[in-house]
């Protein structure tokens, strides 16, 4: 997992026990998750626990943490990847600080890892959030058809050609609401055969993709 320098710096600041003790750390990480998942996020950083921290550092840490969470969900990172990534970050702090503070830092990261990985609910919610950023073509859920037989028209006396009136009912999920619509069209026999052939092709290519 690649992280940019600013995110790394933010995480380092987050791991610094001078800025964040355990309570503040948990509060901030909870706030970060909540800020991503809930829609009203105006007062994200107004928590009384976080009042004493320098707002600049706090905002930086918040950005870094949120970005880190999003990236790790995007990459579908497992527990080991996340923890190795965090250990890489902690390296500087480890050198700078005394041994006793290291324990706290480590504990904090363990807590974060716990939140990231063990609380499946958070992860699936975030996955849903990310997968909702998408263009989704309508799903065909049902089909009904009628046969139409054209005997003659205004110009030709004898036509005698069949055609099909087809109506797809589709499920549409664009722009945040799911709705059902009807899609009507008429086609000749060759066109219908073409459509069926293309659908079969599509099904086949999906099966082929499955067998990779």
């Amino acid at each position: 997992m690649e992280l940019s320098e600013s995110v790394l710096k933010g995480l380092q600041a987050l791991g610094d026990p001078v800025n964040f003790d355990m309570n503040k750390f948990t509060t901030l990480s909870e706030l970060a998750f909540r800020g991503l998942l809930s829609s009203e996020s105006e007062a994200v950083l107004d928590h009384p626990d976080l009042k004493q921290i320098d707002p600049i550092v706090l905002k930086h840490c918040h950005i870094a943490l949120t970005t880190f969470i999003l990236e790790s969900v995007k990459q579908n990172a497992d527990k080991s990847t996340v923890s190795s990534c965090l250990e890489d970050v902690r390296f500087d702090t480890e050198r700078a600080d005394a041994l006793c503070t290291l324990y706290q830092v480590k504990y904090g990261y363990l807590k974060l890892i716990f939140q990231l990985c063990s609380l499946k609910q958070n992860k699936t919610d975030l996955e849903n959030l990310l997968s909702s950023i998408d263009k989704c073509p309508p799903h065909i859920t049902d089909v009904s058809w009628r046969l139409e037989y054209c005997m003659k028209n205004a110009h030709v006396h004898k036509v005698n050609q069949p055609s099909y009136l087809i109506s797809f009912s589709v499920e549409n999920g664009d722009n945040g609401r799911s709705s059902e619509e009807e899609l009507n069209f008429s086609c000749t026999m060759e066109q219908l055969q073409d459509l069926v052939g293309k659908m079969k092709d599509a099904a086949k290519s999906i099966e082929k993709a499955m067998q990779l």
Partner: peptide, 8 residues
């Protein structure tokens, strides 16, 4: 279910 979807 297609679900709610938004553009990037």
């Amino acid at each position: 279910t297609p679900g709610p979807s938004y553009s990037f």
